[in-house]
Design a protein around this nucleic acid. Sequence first.
DNA 1: GGCCAGGTGTAAA
DNA 2: TTTACACATGGC
Length: 201
Amino acid sequence: MSITAFTLYKKLEAMDLLQNSPQYWWPNAGEFEVVIGAVLTQNTTWRNVEKSLANLEGFLTLESFLQLNEEELKEKIRPSGFYNQKAPRLLQIASNIKKEFNTFKNFQKSVTRSWLLEQKGIGEESADAILCYGCFRAEMVVDTYTKRLLKSYSVELKNYQAYKDFLEDDLQHHFQKNELFNVYALFHGMIVEYNKCKKSC
DNA sequence: GGCCAGGTGTAAA
DNA sequence: TTTACACATGGC
């Protein structure tokens, strides 16, 4: 049987999955460290990302992060894997943000999805995670959990954008425009928490 | 011990 | 335009 995005959202909402989560689910949403976390969590558990973020204490703002050299960064993000490629990519991204927008505040206000996708190390999911949780934009994040969950309802689509459209198009009809950021942010969060819960509960 | 995690870039078909 | 593969640590 198939399902709509709105029905799925309501099902997950009724499960009260976010009771122990931050307001917008992603820790420290609206901070530069969301950019770091979005890259570090690629094919990596959040548990391992947390170790790296702890090592980066004091270097989690755009300006302080740019004080690090590549070797220092590699050492600090080692627990979240792929550090040889994530370190140079993160430094390049941070440097480009500084050059293009000067401050993280300006970045939040002005960055576009296509600008993010031009950055090496940021694909579609990371771009949406940064826009949604880092910039408070109404952009739905699609990850492997999302695809897996939809598949269990016989929804299988051809690419990332098709999943994003499937979710956003339906939800736009059920919420006011100013509610969408919150809905998308929590929807993705609930999907991830649902999968964690499925393993441990 | 093997499998997989809140993916992405590149090269080959 | 798809598909295969490298990238790497740590928990279960």
